[in-house]
Simulated scan of single mutants.
Amino acid sequence: MNDRLPHEKGFHISWDQIHRDARALAWRLDGKGPDDGAWRAVVGITRGGLVPAAVVARELDIRVVDTISVKSYNHQTQSEPHVIKSPQADVMGDQGEGVLIIDDLVDSGRTLALVREMYPKAMFATVYAKPLGRPLVDSFITEVSQDTWIFFPWDMALQYVQPYRGSEN
């Protein structure tokens, strides 16, 4: 039995690391679009997908960027996902064909399953993937175990940490 809290098996991501990993995701997606390798648009799943979507759009020179807002977490508790805001219909075209849908992480896969049902022809990519959600993404950069909690830089603040052994005095 695992008595650890979600944050005790943590994977801490810095701003530099998310930038490097999002660029790596862009490189992996480059030339894979249906229009002679090009993509029509990038759609970030808010909120976590905003930063990687911006990096991917920049790296691939994609000027059409939109969002879909899906709420599936209340702090660290996961609930049934529901769409709060959809992307513009003209951006999504024919069921998302030619559109990259980007998120920071696929965990259980419930958020991506909902969005994939709406836009089955889109390409789904995440920076990080857990085993349960991995089958729902077309591309990702790093896989972490299902019981790992990822701490993203936009959720963190720098603070003093007491030394492991003793004190500084």
Results as ranks from 00 to 15, higher is better:
61 D>H: 09
100 L>R: 10
117 E>N: 11
14 S>Q: 08
20 R>I: 10
141 I>W: 10
27 W>H: 06
125 A>Y: 14
109 G>K: 05
18 I>C: 03
140 F>A: 01
112 L>H: 03
106 V>S: 06
34 P>K: 03
168 E>L: 13
101 I>W: 07
54 A>E: 13
149 W>R: 01
148 T>I: 03
80 E>N: 03
78 Q>A: 15
81 P>K: 14
154 W>M: 09
109 G>Y: 05
65 V>Q: 00
22 A>D: 03
137 V>W: 11
153 P>E: 13
61 D>E: 12
150 I>Y: 07
166 G>P: 12
28 R>E: 11
65 V>D: 01
97 E>C: 04
27 W>M: 07
86 S>M: 15
74 N>Q: 10
33 G>A: 05
117 E>G: 08
85 K>P: 00
69 S>Y: 10
98 G>M: 03
142 T>R: 14
157 A>P: 00
95 Q>C: 02
28 R>S: 09
127 V>S: 01
61 D>Q: 11
161 V>K: 12
62 I>M: 08
88 Q>Y: 10
78 Q>V: 14
103 D>T: 11
118 M>G: 02
58 R>E: 14
158 L>K: 09
20 R>Y: 08
20 R>V: 06
83 V>D: 07
8 E>W: 13
45 I>E: 08
128 Y>E: 06
53 A>Q: 01
102 I>L: 04
85 K>R: 15
66 D>Y: 07
88 Q>A: 13
124 F>M: 10
153 P>N: 14
87 P>F: 10
37 G>Q: 12
93 G>A: 07
38 A>K: 10
71 K>Y: 05
122 A>E: 05
96 G>N: 00
46 T>V: 07
48 G>D: 11
157 A>W: 13
29 L>C: 10
136 L>Y: 13
74 N>C: 15
100 L>C: 04
13 I>Y: 00
15 W>H: 11
79 S>A: 08
46 T>Q: 11
130 K>D: 14
53 A>P: 06
134 R>Q: 11
164 Y>L: 12
45 I>P: 00
61 D>S: 07
24 A>V: 06
79 S>P: 00
63 R>I: 03
46 T>D: 03
73 Y>P: 01
48 G>M: 05
115 V>E: 05
90 D>M: 09
